[in-house]
Write a protein that binds this DNA or RNA. Structure first.
Lengths: 219, 219
DNA sequence: ATCGCAATTTTGTCTAACAAGTACACATGC
DNA sequence: GCATGTGTACTTGTTAGACAAAATTGCGAT
């Protein structure tokens, strides 16, 4: 069946709210009252409620019973856990890819784009970087693994919305490590690839956590 | 804070429906109309709707737009994908555990219970078996990894509700393979542990898929 | 200044209703 | 006979308004 753009009202609101969260329009900690959301999109409160509940389930918003939903504010511990989790999935992914020496086309393309954006703003690197890692996971052709990783991607993007324009890593270094990773996969060196990946993610995770720790005390 | 049993009405309905699905009371393919659910629990339709939507998101129910929700019927391809996905997570988990030679206490206990239930009905093995594998993942102490695995566990239990009393694997063999796995972790042999795990899951996955394929043609 | 209480705000759930989409049975035309 | 079109019944999607329950906030008393 051809993919149509039709979605329910709730889905449309979810989509828009996600964008506004990722773009930083809705900063971490922002309150999202049901009535406000309903008013903003000119829908009934239950509709807005359903959208908010979905985003809470996704982890983009947080809310306790009878309290208003807020854009999730990630702690340094959160970012470390997010990166540990993605490391677990991606490590096994690169091992499996290395066992068949399968270098995903989409990963090569994404890394080429990162290299091309050498002099661009750090925020522009986020998208191709996420795509690169997603390509590794998607290459396994496991719907569930991809879905799970997609959920993680949401939180990764939420991390990025916290740091915004801060330069945490040089794009040259990112591209170089990605390249090395793909070479090791092509060479069939699963352990080596897993190790490079672990270092790559550990490094990013540490920088991010440090940055957030500095930010947290200020707020 | 102490854990209280208080939950919202929606949560309570979700919990009960989950149990009824796992127990086989609601067989795969069963229709769950919003009004019926609402009537059954004596709640308003929107409340029932919220519960159903949650279960659809979880993957326990499936539903297209404007169609009534049904208990998900898993195909052989589904079970293979579920087992591939859990293999990815668990493989990396046992590697990490082996690197520190950390044998989770809870895993030992669960496997002891499986051994004790040598002559019990196959359906009774499901619970300690799931617990064993969960213990390996939980030992990583990564909240997100555990949450993700918990989602997978739901689908694994759904698989089990499909086969019900069928004896697919001998409990002796399961216990033996689990024991071997823990020994390799204790010995610090990550690659070996990952390999044993892969075979363990591959075998179970194949049996399950075959069983479901046989079942599917009949229905 | 701290604690407790009350008012306000916000969410949780319900009832009732209409709109919109799907599925199935039926009739029609080739 | 078979494919196509139509219509009806059923189910879900969304809305409106309302009340109850819980949490936050601010005020007042000690």
């Amino acid at each position: 069946m051809a993919r149509l753009g039709v979605v329910s009202v709730v889905q449309a609101i979810i989509r828009d709210l996600r964008e506004r969260i990722f773009s930083g329009d809705l900063a971490p900690g922002s309150a999202l009252r049901e009535v406000d959301v309903a008013e903003h999109y000119e829908v009934a409160r239950p509709t807005a409620k359903a959208a908010l509940e979905n985003l809470v389930a996704t982890g983009l918003l947080s809310r306790n019973a009878h309290q208003t939903a807020r854009v999730r504010r990630l702690t340094p511990a959160d970012t470390r856990d997010i990166y540990r989790t993605r490391a677990i999935i991606e490590a096994e992914a690169v091992r499996l890819l290395a066992s068949t020496r399968h270098v995903p086309e989409a990963a090569l393309e994404s890394n080429a784009r990162i290299t091309a954006l050498r002099d661009a703003s750090p925020i522009q690197i986020v998208d191709p970087d996420v795509r690169f890692h997603t390509a590794l996971v998607d290459a396994l052709q496991s719907p569930r693994t991809s879905t799970i990783y997609e959920q993680l991607t949401d939180e990764i993007r939420l991390c990025m919305s916290h740091v915004q324009d801060a330069t945490l890593l040089s794009t040259e270094r990112i591209a170089a490590e990605h390249g090395q990773l793909l070479e090791l996969i092509a060479a069939g060196d699963g352990d080596g690839a897993a190790e490079v990946l672990q270092r790559h993610l550990d490094n990013a995770s540490t920088r991010l956590a440090e940055h957030l720790a500095g930010l947290g005390s200020a707020v």
